[in-house]
Simulated scan of single mutants.
Amino acid sequence: MASTRAHHVGVTVADLEGAVEFYRDVLGLDVLDRFTVSGEAFASAVGVEGATGEFVHLDADGARIELIEYEPEGEERTVPSVNQPGATHVGLAVSDLDGFHKSLPDGVGTLSEPRTTDTGSRILFVRDPEDNLVELIEA
């Protein structure tokens, strides 16, 4: 069996530029690359007839976050909750969770104030502009 290693975490969005602004300007990630993928091989690989994907890769201190906007766009989904089967979130480390929380622009939704778990980790969940969950952790 071939060995595997992490390459990226993908987040599908409806408004790529709005998502890039959030991940770049609010979360402080650097844009690494922008590109478009289309054609029959891509459409077949993702299982979406006639698909085209607009991609932006961002650097999260060595971890790659991949934002994708598809054409045709899929159906809307319910607002995700962390306890839903299949729920996903992006996890990012911060050195000062309280400072990060205080610096959030108005309108950025959070699930709560920063909390300390029974393991001693401090966490805060925020929602990106499309309600995707992002966990900030001060371990």
Results as ranks from 00 to 15, higher is better:
residue 42 F to P: 01
residue 43 A to C: 06
residue 44 S to E: 14
residue 44 S to K: 13
residue 44 S to F: 10
residue 45 A to C: 07
residue 45 A to L: 14
residue 45 A to D: 13
residue 46 V to N: 05
residue 46 V to Q: 03
residue 47 G to K: 15
residue 47 G to N: 12
residue 47 G to A: 12
residue 47 G to Y: 06
residue 47 G to C: 09
residue 49 E to V: 09
residue 49 E to K: 15
residue 49 E to D: 15
residue 50 G to V: 08
residue 50 G to L: 12
residue 52 T to Y: 02
residue 52 T to I: 00
residue 52 T to S: 05
residue 53 G to T: 03
residue 54 E to G: 00
residue 54 E to W: 03
residue 54 E to N: 02
residue 56 V to K: 00
residue 56 V to E: 02
residue 56 V to L: 05
residue 57 H to R: 08
residue 57 H to L: 13
residue 59 D to L: 04
residue 59 D to S: 10
residue 59 D to G: 06
residue 60 A to S: 03
residue 61 D to A: 15
residue 62 G to K: 07
residue 62 G to Q: 10
residue 63 A to H: 01
residue 63 A to E: 02
residue 63 A to C: 10
residue 63 A to I: 04
residue 63 A to G: 10
residue 64 R to Q: 06
residue 65 I to R: 01
residue 65 I to Q: 00
residue 65 I to P: 01
residue 66 E to H: 12
residue 67 L to H: 00
residue 68 I to G: 00
residue 68 I to M: 10
residue 68 I to W: 00
residue 69 E to N: 08
residue 70 Y to K: 01
residue 70 Y to I: 02
residue 70 Y to F: 05
residue 70 Y to P: 03
residue 71 E to A: 08
residue 71 E to C: 04
residue 72 P to N: 15
residue 72 P to T: 11
residue 75 E to W: 01
residue 75 E to K: 08
residue 75 E to H: 04
residue 76 E to G: 13
residue 76 E to K: 11
residue 77 R to G: 15
residue 79 V to L: 11
residue 79 V to R: 13
residue 80 P to H: 07
residue 80 P to L: 07
residue 81 S to P: 03
residue 81 S to F: 14
residue 82 V to A: 11
residue 82 V to I: 15
residue 82 V to D: 07
residue 83 N to K: 12
residue 83 N to R: 12
residue 83 N to V: 11
residue 84 Q to F: 12
residue 85 P to K: 09
residue 85 P to C: 09
residue 85 P to I: 14
residue 86 G to T: 15
residue 87 A to M: 08
residue 87 A to G: 10
residue 87 A to V: 08
residue 88 T to Q: 08
residue 88 T to E: 04
residue 88 T to C: 06
residue 90 V to Q: 01
residue 91 G to I: 01
residue 91 G to Y: 02
residue 91 G to V: 05
residue 92 L to I: 01
residue 92 L to Y: 02
residue 93 A to Q: 08
residue 93 A to M: 06
residue 93 A to G: 10
residue 93 A to T: 05
residue 93 A to N: 07
residue 94 V to R: 03
residue 94 V to F: 02
residue 94 V to L: 04
residue 95 S to W: 00
residue 96 D to M: 06
residue 96 D to H: 06
residue 97 L to T: 00
residue 98 D to W: 10
residue 98 D to N: 13
residue 98 D to K: 13
residue 98 D to S: 14
